[in-house]
Write a protein that binds this DNA or RNA. Structure first.
Lengths: 192, 192
DNA sequence: CATGAATATGGCATCGAGTGTCATTTGTCA
DNA sequence: TGACAAATGACACTCGATGCCATATTCATG
């Protein structure tokens, strides 16, 4: 079992992320200092930076937690399924997170969109997903000198379609149907 | 005509970028301070930050300079040309930059790849291209509730294919034919 | 060419992110 | 309970980034 020490660590990491995001949304990213995040929890700035490499990372803590799950999901897709469809189906599984708390998801998307530093970070994290998923996908493709590149292009395309759909949905304040929009974005990429 | 003042400004901006990149390549991004960049040119740190918002920006100064050119190139593509092909042709025009100085291009790509902060910045700049190009492309698409999204997906896909091809080329130290590789990447996206 | 307005620069002070170090506290396990 | 390992806090420090103001440079006009 996990043990008290490990449990406390995960809890603190989670709390730091929660408090941080709340403050960013309420008062803006730049105007919120690390001390502001740490104070309500009675922790020190030094501890904060043992849990997160940068201030930006608190916004995308959940990205890291999902990486393994995504990889597993893609691995579990039926062997005969075409590669692009497998990646699309994998990404679709993420939508439950947006469904779970639409208001927060939209606020978070807006926060990211309006903060250049966060835009960069989100892409940086996305690049990690890309690399991991492409590594899985490669094994599905016929051997060739360029199958690594092909895997990367397929994953990157699906991911780009996905994020643009989510972004559009958030810009519209959730007025449209997210699932349908993502589906359309996937279809757009398929029929270039 | 430009005037002395304007000419000096552009020259200094160019010099700052050149010296900065050189030092980053030679001694690493994190270990090079802004003072290190500014010293050989006899400028002050304060002046540096009047030319570049962040230290990262010196690496991507040429991105900004190319934005208008890219937009114009896309606008100039024949009206009947399918949208994806128009974007691909537009991006192809960038390859002359990589041909012009292959060694430096490869070194720069490596620098970016190995520096997380620069990875984020490069995506951030790419996102600007995406937005600009998508805005142009929209006018080529049939009116519909989702044509904005469709334009974004098309542009993002082409751009992703392009950068992954360049990246692969740089990883291989320029051993493969860049033009052919980019062409293949474009084809991979087209035939998902 | 002289002169005053507009603009670019440098120096200074300041804030805050991020890191190294070490003493102290807290969880673990025999 | 006592010893060991791991987590934390406090402190000092570096450096990116910004506001402020005095100085220097360019430009437009007479």
């Amino acid at each position: 079992m996990p043990g008290l020490r490990e449990r406390k660590k995960q809890e603190l990491r989670h709390e730091l992320s929660r408090v941080g995001i709340d403050q960013f949304i309420a008062r803006g990213f730049a105007t919120t200092t690390v001390d502001d995040i740490v104070a309500p929890l009675g922790a020190s700035k030094r501890t904060f930076f043992r849990y997160f490499e940068t201030k930006e990372d608190v916004v995308f803590a959940w990205y890291d937690e999902l990486t393994h799950e995504l990889v597993d999901t893609l691995r579990a897709r039926p062997k005969h399924e075409p590669p692009y469809e497998a990646v699309c189906a994998t990404l679709m599984s993420l939508l439950r997170l947006y469904d779970a708390d639409r208001t927060r998801a939209i606020a978070l998307q807006r926060l990211t969109r309006e903060t250049p530093a966060l835009v960069g970070k989100s892409f940086e994290k996305r690049a990690i997903w890309e690399r991991e998923l492409a590594a899985v996908l490669v094994s599905r493709l016929a051997k060739s000198a360029t199958r690594q590149l092909r895997a990367e292009v397929i994953v990157a395309t699906a991911l780009a379609a996905f994020t643009h759909a989510v972004d559009q949905w958030a810009v519209d304040e959730g007025a449209t149907d997210l699932h349908a929009l993502v589906g359309k974005a996937f279809a757009f990429a398929k029929a270039l």
